[in-house]
Each structure stands twice: as structure tokens, then as C-alpha cells.
């Protein structure tokens, strides 16, 4: 059964001057249990809004959105999210930041810190437990964000351009790490990005969204086996899939470009 089911999702924003902006319309998407699904789309296609809907932070104005067969009303315990940068609590140490989800669930301090230490070690953050976020590099912060999400043992991990702020080299290392985490934990991952190469490298399938009003234009399967390493970047099937995604996306990016002067 599909773990996440979106049918005819619509999102209408009412701006301050009472004009209505249709951000998302007729969006259909199924996410299978245990798959790594990437969503790519031009700027302003509503991909982040859609992710926030799955998280229960935002709500569709029409349509049905089911997680585990139930409509999403508020954030659900089996769904965790890794945010874009600046989402760590500046007043909490790395240890407290990672343990915060467990604290919210009422896990006693000793137990939650023990659990957090495990994820800290796994994320290569050992020795940084007592540091505050401002003492960490951008990459380190993102590791904390991922560890924090994993620590609540979610079934679904939502990621909203988590590597967007990293430089190209660091970004590749993080992509490899994420693939290892995926292979190890077998969680369902929904990953929003505007980077086509990243989407194809990481995903089992890539959902391409249209420009506003956003809907899923096409879902493209990535015919590459796991475990994946950087070597696949040279594979013919990788290159073919990547150009297929590009072609599907290009027309939409052009629309965004002519509206915003910004493609993706």
C-alpha cells in the first residue's frame, strides 16, 4: 500500500490585497513504503508547500492527503522533517538539539541523551555534544538536523533542500552519507531539491513538478541499483535519466524564468 497518497491537492493563497494565487492544483502523487522519492520543480511550483502539507504544517485548500491511510490534520509522530538551514535551537547544545524530539515525547533525560549520543556518533558529531550551533560549520549543522530527525525513529523522513546551502564538494559527501543512512534504516524519504543531478543520484523515482499552479507533471523511475556510489555518475543510464528529467523540467523552468527571472 502507498504510505503517502495525494489526490487532487489544491492550495490557494490569499494575498494581502485579496488577490488569489493558485499555488498548487490537481496534484496527484503516491509515495511507496520504503522508497526514496525526489521532487524537483522550478521556483514557485509549490514543492516546499507540498512537503509542509505532508508534515502537517500546512493544509491543502482542496483534495485528499493521506499518510498511512489517514488524512493529515496535524503533524504525525511517524513523520519527521529535516529543514533548510537555520532550524537548530541556538540556545541548545548539539546533544540537546538532537534529543529535543524525544524530550517532547516525554522520554526522561538520561534515556533521551543516551539515544541522542548514538545518533550523534553515527552522524560523525562525536566530540561536539556540548557545542552550540554557532560554533559549527554549515555542514555540521545539517548533520545535527538529520540526527535530530532520525532520533525520533520516524517511518517517513521529509527533507526540504537540506544541502542547498553547502558547497559542491561537501554536498556530494552529504549525498553519499544520506544514501548510506537510507540503506541502513530503510525509511521512506521524500526529498525536495532543485538540483536534477542530486535528485537522480539519490532517488528511486523523481517527481517533476510544473510551474504554478504546481502539479506533478511526470514521475520518472531511476533504473539504477543500490547501493549507489559516485561511480554511477558516469553510467549511461544515469546520464540518460538525468537528461530525461531535464527535458521534462525545461519547459517549466522557462516559464518560471520568464515570470521570476529565476529558473530553479
Amino acid at each position: 500500500m502507498e504510505q503517502i497518497q495525494a489526490r487532487n491537492i489544491e492550495k490557494v493563497f490569499e494575498a494581502m490585497d485579496l488577490t488569489r494565487v493558485i499555488a498548487i492544483k490537481n496534484l496527484d502523487l503516491d509515495v511507496r513504503r520504503g522508497e526514496f522519492l525526489c521532487i524537483v520543480g522550478p521556483s514557485g511550483c509549490g514543492k516546499s508547500t507540498f512537503l509542509a502539507m505532508i508534515a502537517g504544517l500546512d493544509h491543502p485548500t482542496a483534495g485528499n492527503l493521506l499518510v498511512e491511510g489517514e488524512p493529515v490534520k496535524t503533524p504525525r509522530p511517524e513523520v519527521a522533517m529535516v529543514f533548510q538551514e537555520h532550524s537548530l535551537f541556538p540556545w541548545k547544545t548539539v546533544l540537546q538539539n538532537v534529543a529535543v524530539g524525544l524530550k517532547a515525547r516525554g522520554v526522561p533525560r538520561k534515556e533521551r541523551e543516551e539515544a541522542a549520543r548514538e545518533f550523534i556518533e553515527m552522524s560523525g558529531l562525536k566530540g561536539f555534544e556540548g557545542k552550540y550551533p554557532y560554533e559549527l560549520s554549515g555542514g555540521m549543522k545539517q548533520r545535527v538536523g538529520i540526527a535530530r530527525a532520525l532520533a525520533v525513529s520516524p517511518h517517513v523522513l521529509l527533507m526540504d533542500e537540506p544541502f542547498g546551502a553547502l558547497d559542491a564538494q561537501t554536498r556530494i559527501l552529504f549525498q553519499e552519507e544520506l544514501l548510506q543512512i537510507y540503506d541502513r534504516f530503510g525509511k521512506t524519504i521524500v526529498f525536495v531539491t532543485h538540483n536534477v543531478e542530486e535528485a537522480v543520484f539519490l532517488g528511486d523515482r523523481v517527481a517533476v513538478m510544473t510551474f504554478r499552479p504546481g502539479r506533478v507533471k511526470e514521475v520518472i523511475s531511476v533504473p539504477i541499483e543500490r547501493p549507489r556510489t559516485l561511480d554511477i555518475l558516469k553510467d549511461e543510464s544515469f546520464i540518460r535519466t538525468q537528461s530525461l528529467v531535464w527535458e521534462t523540467l525545461r519547459e517549466e523552468s522557462a516559464k518560471a524564468f520568464h515570470t521570476y527571472g529565476e529558473a530553479a
Partner: peptide, 24 residues
């Protein structure tokens, strides 16, 4: 953004106040 983090991780009300709003 931090308030959203609080919602996603199901912060109870007193954690919203004492772990996010007041320190912030």
C-alpha cells in the same frame, strides 16, 4: 522556522514557551 520545528516534533505547549519563545 523554529516554531515549525516545534510543531513537527510535537512540542507540548510548555516546551513551545520555555524551549522556543522565551529563550528566543
Amino acid at each position: 522556522d523554529l516554531v515549525r520545528v516545534g510543531h513537527v516534533f510535537h512540542f507540548p505547549r510548555q516546551m513551545m514557551v520555555f524551549d522556543i519563545i522565551l529563550p528566543g
